[in-house]
Each structure stands twice: as structure tokens, then as C-alpha cells.
Design a protein around this nucleic acid. Structure first.
Length: 588
RNA sequence: CGGGGUGUAGCUUAGCCUGGUAGAGCGCCUGGUUUGGGACCAGGAGGUCGUAGGUUCGAAUCCUAUCGCCCCGACCA
């Protein structure tokens, strides 16, 4: 049992000025963390206890899912990253660490970086240690600090520069095994989030800079989340908006027949979709072809969308470019011969088709059939443009951003959308890293093959905050039993009375025998202060020992979640406490 | 990195527009009265007003630069 007066729980009456969202305010007010600098936090004793509980539950479930725990360095030789497949993209977020004394010399490439994740470390390790199919599959993990120089740290622990993550890496002999490892981890994640009493739903996700073939994100639904989840209750479909699709284009849609000859018409000063919709032109946005210019690995390419649709930039990842970005106005003029607003992809109007790395069309433009687009000549557009006949399309794909209300790809019912916090992610990586690092094994036919990998992450510190975001009220945090820093709080109003403090110790011992972590509020504070602090730090079960109750021969027992207080006769207090603890522990 | 905001005591802040030498609440220390939902009284400590320049007789206040922090965008667990 821990005595509050001997512990350290610096609670605040007022919210810190730099906190915006409820969970961030409560993290600070309840004395869980303190900020050192943007995205850098000290975990105070109470916050650390929650981290330790989350870590232990995570460890148990990953172990149960086949994970083998190890510990890797946080300082990485830069060579590992240079050798890996994503140095160009990843270096932006990495902290550099130079050798001692190098600060005085001329700037140059760093010799070390602080690890943002560990594919580049684990894969070379496995390469040297595992060479036979007999030693596979393996799934290694650690629960450790990660460093990412986030451009914009946000919302306390939600997006921090230094944070705690469980990261796991699976190695299999073939695709089938990798899928098995993947789903074993998915199951472990589901068990983890259930055990910590937090709703996190698995959604289909974009693979981003990690690469790989497919992935799921675990999302805690919350208004303050950074991600949009597109979902359908009917079919159970759920995806990150970056990845989500809809059945907007019916299967087997026939190409529209040409409606007439292409006709150029003057549109002086018209450079937006909206301007072309307006009088005197009156072309609805869903009848316009929008042409965007991007630069992929140095070469320009075009993306064609309906005028009413928006590009979902993450979906360009499927095109296979290492790096891509929107073209600048100057680059657009150079390649297209016209300024943005008058662009199109009609054959014959393209100034320099050979310079393009491709013309990628969103499938939804087939719904237009015949429409209007820019003439690649400032101040002119063309109408009667037929998708099949006239556009220089090299490939169709899904590039548009899905909106709520569109038909679900599975059920056809309207899709819904909500915000979520990404607390976990699982990737099926394939052989991207194993090939790069030469992590190969020999099979029973003496043949050599690259290992098939998966990688998996749970943001432990972010989860800590997501739990609070999901479980709080106007008075403070409402901890789920399994992750509460303490599970029972014994509030003693007159700690100087031997009768009261002896009773507190006796009940605390009983609660501990029942398996609970106990905090005794033995401070010489007024009752109001103690009640407010109790609600703020959110301990699931509160036992109050006060003069009023002692006269009646009772103690008061109240669950943080509940409104009502039960008065328990002293004689029954220990058994009542034990059974209540058992019920709460089973409930989570 | 682009856009917007902000920096005054440990915390929350007033004062800034219209320059005249910094005020409150909480917290802290001392004493007293209180004691079931953030008590009250009396006394006290604590601030180079983010930093550096400039304007001025005089700068928290006006100007310039710079740094930190917060919010919106691109990125992520």
C-alpha cells in the first residue's frame, strides 16, 4: 500500500494554458506527466505506474501471440539506414547524433541517428543469426522508447518526439506463414485492447512509407483523433480514409459512347472548377475532368479526377514512386504549356506527352463519359471529351477521396465517417527489407529465399492518453480497472485518529489480499480537497473513512463510474471490499 | 516548412490599444479559526514582464530581430 503523503501526486486545480483537449489537460492536472519541451514529457510516478501496467499487459499478449522479447539500441549507426530502403523518406524525421566533439567541425552527415523504429536493426540481426528454414518463423519484439523529430508535436503524448512503443518484427519462410503471423498479431492486439478496457477498432490502412502489401490500423474512436475512419455498420467494413474505397462506379459499367466532336471554347479568366460551373458556362463539377500535375522521382505525371472529387494523395503510393509531390506552377507551365486552371489530358493537346511518367485516371471519371476539361492553352477549355476516345490515360485506379454517404464497397449501404486516434498498426511487409539486407534462409531443397516479413507497432504512451480521452468525465479520469495506477483509494478524513488510520491499514491489507493496488489518502486536507482529487485521478474504487461514518459504524464504498455510495458496516467491510474488487477485476 | 496566435511569480492571468517604474486568484511560508465536495482571517516570501537591439527624459506597453510554446495544414504509433 502506498501513502499519498509519502508519494508524489501533484494535482492542479486549473488546466495548463498549453493544453487543448480533455485528455491532455487531465494528464497534467492529475499529476501523470509534466512537459519538458514540445513533445518531450516526464512521466511522474502516477503516470509511470499506468505505463508499467500497459507495458505488462502488452507484453503478456504479445508473448501469447508468439512474440519473443529482446532489446535493441536506440542509437543507430547511420549506415544501417543508408543501406535500408527508405533512407530518403525517413531521414527527415530522425534526430541526428554526432560523435562527441564533432560539433566544432564542419557540418556533415551524422554518424548516428536516434531510432524512430527498428526494421533497419532487426533485419541485419536476423540475417546473421538465422539462415535455415528450421529456425523460422520468428517474431521479435521490444517495448522501448522511439525518437521522431515530428514536425509538429501535438496534444501532449498524442504525437510526441520521444514516446514508448511496442514494436514487433516477424520473419517467415513464405507468404502463407507471414499471413499467419500477421493474424496472430492482429488477435494479440485485439486481446490487448480488450484487456485494457479500451475500444479500438481494426481498420484497413495505407502502408505509407513502410511499404508492404497490406495493413490494419487500430483506432480509438475520438473526436480529437487525427484520422478519418470510413465505415459501414451493415457489412463491418472499416478503413482509414486514406485507403477507403466505395462502390461509386458500378461493376460492369459500359464506356459511354462519344457525344460529338471535341470543341474548343474560350473561357477567359476561368481557372477554377467553380468558375466553369458558373454562368455563362454552366458546366457542373461532376461533368468536368480535373487534371493535377505531380512530380514522381523527378518526372512529371498527371492525375485525372472528376471536378467534384478530391485527390486522396496517399493513394498515389500505389504508383510505385519513391517520393512524389505536387508540381510547382513553374514546373506545370514547363511541361504542359499552360497554367493551372486550363490543363487537360486530351490526346493531341498535350505539349510533351513523352515527358510524362504517366497519366493516371480515377475510375470515377468513367461516370462522366463525355465532359469538359482544359485545353492546355490559357483561357480555353474543350467540351465533348470522351473518356475512352480522347483522354491519354495510361492507367485507371482509385485516387479519389471517399466521402461519407457513398455506397459501401461490400454492402452498398451508405458509408459513415468518424474520427479516430491511431494507437496500433500492423503491416505485412513482404520481402522489401529482407531483400535489401540479404536476410535469406535455406529451404529443405537447399534453395535460398528472402524471408517474408511483417512489422507491428503499438504506441504505448499514445494509448495511455487515448484511454483517458475515451474514459473521463467532467470531474476527471475514469480509469479502467486493469490500467489504473492504483485500483483502490482509501480516503481517510482524520488520519491523526488512530481508529481511522488503523482501519485504513486493515482495509488496505484486505484489498491487497484481493489483488488490488491500494493508495491511502492520509493527507491532512479538508474532505472537499480529497474528494476532488480522488475524482480527478480516477481510481476505480474509493473507500471513505470519516468521522460521520465511524459514529454510525460504517465506511462508504463508491465506484468511480457509479453515482451511488454504499454504506458498509465495519464488520462486513473486508469481505465486501474483496467481493467488490473481484467483480471489478472481472468486469474489465 | 507555410498560415494564425501567444510569451508577465511555481500555476491561471490583468495591465499593452492610448508609454510614467507591475496587480489579482490559486499554490507556497507563519499564526489563528475551521473540518463530508477545491474553507476563512491576519501577516509574509516570490517577477531582469522570453531574449537581444532600437525609439524615448522614461518601455511590460511602440519598432526591429530572434527564440520558445500553442492552434490549423503535410507526417506518424
Amino acid at each position: 500500500m502506498t501513502l499519498w503523503s509519502q508519494f508524489f501526486i501533484p494535482t492542479l486545480k486549473e488546466s495548463p494554458a498549453d493544453a487543448e483537449i480533455a485528455s491532455h489537460k487531465l494528464l497534467v492536472r492529475a499529476g501523470l506527466v509534466r512537459k519538458l519541451s514540445g513533445g518531450l514529457y516526464t512521466y511522474l510516478p502516477l503516470g509511470l505506474r499506468v505505463m508499467q501496467k500497459l507495458t505488462e499487459i502488452c507484453r503478456q499478449e504479445i508473448n501469447a501471440g508468439g512474440g519473443i522479447e529482446l532489446w535493441m539500441p536506440h542509437v543507430h549507426p547511420v549506415e544501417n539506414w543508408e543501406q535500408g530502403p527508405r533512407w530518403a523518406a525517413a531521414r527527415e524525421i530522425m534526430f541526428r547524433a554526432d560523435s562527441a566533439g564533432d560539433g566544432q567541425r564542419a557540418p556533415r552527415e551524422p554518424q548516428f541517428v536516434l531510432g524512430p523504429t527498428h526494421e533497419e536493426i532487426i533485419t541485419p540481426l536476423v540475417k546473421t543469426e538465422i539462415t535455415s528454414y528450421r529456425d523460422l518463423p520468428k517474431n521479435f519484439y521490444q517495448i522501448a522508447t522511439k525518437f521522431r523529430n515530428e514536425i509538429r508535436p501535438r496534444y501532449g503524448l498524442m504525437r510526441a518526439r520521444e514516446f514508448v512503443m511496442m514494436d514487433a518484427y516477424s520473419f517467415d519462410t513464405n507468404d502463407e506463414g507471414a499471413v499467419k503471423s500477421y493474424f496472430a498479431m492482429k488477435t494479440a492486439y485485439e486481446r490487448f485492447f480488450r484487456r485494457i478496457g479500451t475500444l479500438a477498432i481494426a481498420v484497413e490502412a495505407d502502408t505509407g512509407v513502410m511499404g508492404g502489401s497490406y495493413s490494419h490500423e487500430f483506432m480509438v474512436p475520438a473526436e480529437v483523433g487525427d484520422d478519418d475512419i470510413i465505415y459501414c455498420e451493415e457489412s463491418g467494413y472499416a478503413a482509414n480514409r486514406e485507403k477507403a474505397t466505395s462502390r461509386l462506379v458500378p461493376d460492369g459499367l459500359a464506356d459511354a459512347a462519344p457525344a460529338g466532336e471535341i470543341t474548343e471554347f474560350a473561357t477567359p479568366g476561368v481557372v477554377t472548377i467553380a468558375a466553369l460551373e458558373a454562368a455563362p458556362y454552366g458546366v457542373p463539377a461532376d461533368q468536368q475532368f480535373k487534371t493535377l500535375v505531380y512530380i514522381g522521382d523527378g518526372k512529371p505525371f498527371l492525375v485525372i479526377l472528376r471536378g467534384c472529387d478530391e485527390l486522396e494523395e496517399a493513394k498515389l503510393g500505389q504508383l510505385g514512386f519513391g517520393l512524389f509531390r505536387p508540381a510547382t506552377a513553374e514546373e506545370i507551365v514547363a511541361v504542359m504549356g499552360a497554367k493551372p486552371g486550363s490543363l487537360g489530358a486530351v490526346r493531341g493537346t498535350l505539349a510533351n506527352p513523352g515527358a510524362l511518367a504517366g497519366v493516371f485516371a480515377d475510375a470515377a471519371i468513367r461516370l462522366i463519359g463525355n465532359g469538359t476539361t482544359g485545353a492546355n492553352k490559357d483561357g480555353f477549355h474543350v467540351r465533348n471529351v470522351n473518356v475512352a476516345r480522347d483522354l491519354a490515360i495510361s492507367r485507371f485506379g482509385d485516387f479519389r477521396r471517399v466521402r461519407a454517404g457513398e455506397p459501401c464497397p461490400r454492402s452498398g449501404q451508405p458509408l459513415k465517417s468518424r474520427r479516430g486516434i491511431e494507437v496500433g498498426h500492423i503491416f505485412k511487409l513482404g520481402t522489401k527489407y529482407s531483400e535489401k539486407f540479404g536476410a535469406v534462409y535455406t529451404d529443405d531443397q537447399k534453395q535460398s529465399h528472402p524471408m517474408v516479413m511483417g512489422c507491428y507497432g503499438i504506441g504505448i504512451s499514445r494509448t495511455l492518453q487515448a484511454v483517458i480521452e475515451q474514459s473521463h468525465d467532467a470531474d476527471g479520469i475514469v480509469w479502467p480497472w486493469s490500467v489504473a495506477p492504483f485500483q483502490v483509494l482509501i480516503c481517510v478524513f482524520d488520519p491523526q485518529l488512530a481508529e481511522a488510520s488503523d482501519l485504513a491499514k486493515r482495509l488496505a491489507a484486505a484489498a491487497e489480499r484481493a489483488g488490488a493496488d491500494v493508495l491511502i489518502d492520509d493527507r491532512t486536507e479538508r474532505p472537499g480537497v480529497k474528494f476532488k482529487d480522488a475524482d480527478l485521478i480516477g481510481i476505480p474504487l474509493r473507500v471513505t473513512i470519516g468521522g460521520k461514518g465511524l459514529k454510525e459504524g460504517i465506511v462508504e464504498v463508491k465506484a468511480r463510474r457509479a453515482k451511488d455510495v454504499s454504506k458498509v458496516p465495519l464488520a462486513d467491510a473486508e469481505t465486501h471490499l474483496a467481493s467488490t474488487i473481484a467483480a471489478l477485476a472481472a468486469g474489465t
